[in-house]
Design a protein around this nucleic acid. Structure first.
Lengths: 184, 184
DNA sequence: CATGGCATGTAATGAGTTACATGATTAC
DNA sequence: GTAATCATGTAACTCATTACATGCCATG
């Protein structure tokens, strides 16, 4: 109750999607939320434990796998907590951390060619990500059954819009730098 | 030397721009790098101390302000370290963390109207940021003297491109949701 | 029979924020 | 004279990553 730990609610929310183990939550996150939220096992398992302790989820321990596979289910209390968290506005603008832009910012300390190379590499990475998004989009669109579908697609679309814009930026800046290089 | 601490190099780099105190570095960061790199005093002062201990900067202590204002200058060793850091590719794609998108992802647990409200608020915040970027752009353009100018403008432009794309996304999604609402 | 995927977990470490504490100078 | 800005710094805390450790099950 103390701090608003968004990651806790992310896990709680994912438990409503049919993914009931820590492992499955990680898999789903890596696929779908990956572009705006990441998580490691080092967080997942302690948080699941804590959620169970607070009665937001129940644990069903099977003897299947090694240490006993644990299947989690959200409780009514958990659902209420999730809805409460959702109802809070909170919506700050995304926090971005880009070592690419950080290095670009100090471009005067290196050669123009070095900067151009960096942008080209960045563009390549963006294009790869764009393709990944597109293939995720297709797999989401095939899953008509889920009520989650429209929301999952919208979040993905956000990533697609931004990635397209960033690719455009790369093209424009490369042009600009080529000109700048000629002048010098 | 152990870990590649980008924030350390960000500070080192900013010392080459004519901003020589911890306070001034924070000011400049808040203005210019803010959209892709943030920093707090709790990091700046310890890092400056460490940079001095490693001989990457020199400290000139004046008795001006309270505890003695400290003016930092990058050394040759510091410049070499900065260039070395710059030469490393490293360029991973930006890490984004968006509690807005996280909540949107779980939209099925709330009403469509609530989702629409969230997007409208997000759009408002984006528009505000867009205006901020535009005014920073103008102040950078007036500063023709600096060799940093072109690079600073490019990083800013990245933010402008992305923000424009995100605003477009808001408009498109609001339209989509209004339709979705009618259907239901 | 060995590789890869499924599955859970902890300890150490790192990164970063927040709150607090202090005090000088400048502008109104 | 008082409020804002300039200026430095620390301690406690939160959040997250990384490396490690374990072991089952299915496929080739």
């Amino acid at each position: 109750m103390t701090a608003r730990k968004d990651t806790t609610y992310a896990i709680l929310g994912l438990l409503t999607t049919g993914h009931q183990t820590g492992y499955a939550i990680k898999q789903l996150m890596d696929q779908s939320l990956n572009h705006f939220w990441k998580i490691s096992y080092g967080q997942i398992y302690p948080i699941l434990k804590q959620l169970a302790a607070n009665g937001l989820v129940t644990v069903e321990e099977t003897t299947e796998a090694g240490r006993g596979k644990k299947i989690y289910h959200i409780t009514e209390k958990g659902k209420a907590a999730l809805r409460h968290w959702l109802s809070e506005p909170a919506c700050d603008l995304p926090t971005v951390k880009s070592d690419f832009l950080l290095k670009l910012f100090f471009g005067k300390h290196e050669s123009i060619s070095a900067t151009i190379t960096k942008i080209r590499q960045h563009e390549k990475a963006l294009q790869k990500r764009y393709q990944t998004y597109r293939s995720i989009e297709i797999s989401i669109q095939n899953d008509h059954a889920s009520e989650d579908q429209i929301y999952w697609q919208m979040t993905l679309e956000y990533g697609i819009y931004e990635t397209k814009a960033a690719i455009k930026w790369c093209k424009d800046m490369l042009e600009k730098l080529e000109e700048f290089k000629k002048e010098a």
